[in-house]
Each structure stands twice: as structure tokens, then as C-alpha cells.
Amino acid sequence: MPVDTRRIRGPEESQSPLLFLAPDKVPEASSRQGVRANGDVRPVFARCGLISQAKGSAYLEAGNTKIICSVYGPKETERKDETDMKTGRLVCDFRLAPFSCMKRGAWIQGSEERDLSATLLESLQPGVCLHRYPRSQIEVNVIVLENDGSILAHAVTCASMALADGGIEMYDVVLGCALRQNGNTCLVDPSYSEECGTWQEGYGENQGCVTVALLPNLNQVSGLNADGEMREDTLADAVRTCMDGCHKLYPVVHQALTRAVKRKAPPPEK
């Protein structure tokens, strides 16, 4: 609905009230209010096959982070000019719902979302047997309903579950885990406030965020994304911690996928 600007006599420029909130402090060592230890991931709820039209789909919830992913295809590729037709193409679309963050976002994909799409694609690609789908493309659509931190990591897990649910041939599932390094403490699977935290005044040393995507059975890292300023040994430790975090997720994903398969093809009754 168009708004009559003459009737509402607000100031010409306005700013979000969220700017004036005191930024949350990143909890110091072992002070996640006793809910979980610094090395713990949040409990994850994962289900497959909730979108009936899609070939495969998955829903994942970790704390307040909620993500839906759907997979369409394989279908004929749209881009005919692609020279390499021997392998299939994976297309990723990562979107944050406008209401997912504290501040309302736009429906149009911003540069941050495009960047996340590219990273998601690079993390998923090594896990999918694309050579089995020549001349075709597989579409992966991810939408974040609620952003409470570590969205990229959970999106990777969710998308690989949806791919597996859609019967796309894969070498392995891809699991994601994020970490927030704050000085000498590291918080695994950070929530939104932990992720930003004192980042605003983060002039300290060893500050940064790391996201790792792992193929657990092949023990291969398919995605690595680190920002901030860290020493090299801290980074190596952070990557190792993230890999442990991924392994912790594996049973949950495994269970959700088995459950989906059992429902689709019920075991014969004796």
C-alpha cells in the first residue's frame, strides 16, 4: 500500500532503533549461561521431504536458526553455451527471508546473499556425482526463515540432506559447522549475538569467524571460509574444532535420512 508521505510528518532521515541498543557482549570463557559448553553445537532438529512438489527437500533447525531447502531436477540445462557438457551443473540460490534478521531485508538478492550462494555451491559441488548427470542441471534453493547465527554452515547441511532426499547421487553428505574465535576462546556454532558480538569494537587479536564444510566419510574438506584476523595456528585449531563439530552432526543427519527413506519405501511387512 502506498504511504502518503505528506500525512506522516516524520523526519526526512530515519534510522533503525536497533542501532542504539547496547551491543551484546560476547560471553567470556565458559559463560554461555550454562546452557551449553563453548565446544557444544546447538541441538539440531532435521527432517526430510516436507515440500511435496520438490524432488527433495529438508528442514533444519538449530536453536533459532531455521532453514528450508528444496532440490529440483535434474532437468535440461538452461545455459546451452556451456562448453563442458560432460558433467551436470549445480545451481544454488541462497536467500534470507526479509523477516529473518533483526532488520528487514529486501526480497531482491543482495550481494551478501549472492556471495553465500557461491560459497554454498563450492561447498556442495565436491559431494555430488555431477558426472552422472550430463547435460542437465540440479537446482538447490535455500531460504533462511530465521537467522540466529551460523546460517552458512547449517545451510550446507540442510542442502546436502535435501540432495540426498531427492535421490541425487552423492559421494558423501556434506556437513557444515561454524566457529567464532574470540581471543583465546572459541565458540562452536555461534548464535547471532555471539557471531556479531563485540565485533563492532573488535580491535582485539584473534578475532574471526570460520565455517567449514566436511565430507565426513571421505574426510575431505569441501568448503572453508574464514574472516577476521587470526594467527595461523589458531586458524588450524579452529578448522580442527569445526571438523569435530561436523562429526557431531552426522548421527542426526543420518537418522533423518534413514527415516525419510523408510517412509518413502516402507520395509516389506512380514
Binding site: T119, E122, S123, V210, V221, S222, G223, L224, N225, A226, D227, G228, E229, M230, R231, E232, L235
Partner: peptide, 8 residues
């Protein structure tokens, strides 16, 4: 020698 960004 500080690492500020890593990308695969």
C-alpha cells in the same frame, strides 16, 4: 603473518 581471510 596474521591470516585475515581464507577461502576455498
Amino acid at each position: 603473518g596474521m591470516v585475515t581471510c581464507v577461502r576455498k
